[in-house]
Amino acid sequence: MNRRELLEWVSRGLAAGVAALVGLPGISFFLGGTQQQSSAESQFSRLVKVKDLIPGRPTMVPVMGQKLDAWILSDRQAIGRVWLVREADGSLETGPAKQTVRALSSICPHMGCQVQLQSGGKNFVCPCHRASFGVGGQQLPDPKNGDRNIAPRDLDELECRLVCDDETGDNWVEIKYEKFRTGLDHRVAGV
């Protein structure tokens, strides 16, 4: 290596060092600087009393929780919504063991819009691409689309349990709220 080549390499090396000094933290900051957390995920949150749900009629209930959105912490923010469907034969008087309530995520597994209850209350429909689901969350054939449902899977069912409050004797619906990736034919946790 002669003197000229050495100086060339030193110059290039120093330039690369300076670029890396700014570039590497820059890239790491830009790609990594995301912060969102919500408290209600991965733990059971109490939603409504079983007796407030009308049997056979799906009810949309917001899941409230504390949410950290970048630099803002908000209390009691709706972090998601679920459709609660109480089985039509569950009677008011029986204890938790005798009643069945199913919780369905309101997020359409197709593109992530909020599914709505069709007027009449017999099925869900997504306002974005008209994917329709039965009250149990199962995909329904779409006659306008050659009986093919545009959604890749059924509505996501969430873990749901009924808990009796010892103090008041009320039966409460509790669910574990989770989000799943949209656009896949199987469930993958996360967004």
Partner: peptide, 30 residues
């Protein structure tokens, strides 16, 4: 929201790109 989900449905990099655009799991301040 939908455009972000479209980005998110890209194979392999989708979720990463979506997170990059939204600055998190969901639409928020970032």
């Amino acid at each position: 929201q939908v455009e972000g989900n479209i980005l998110g449905s890209t194979p392999v990099f989708g979720p990463f790109l979506r997170r990059l655009l939204f600055g998190g799991e969901d639409i928020g301040s970032l």
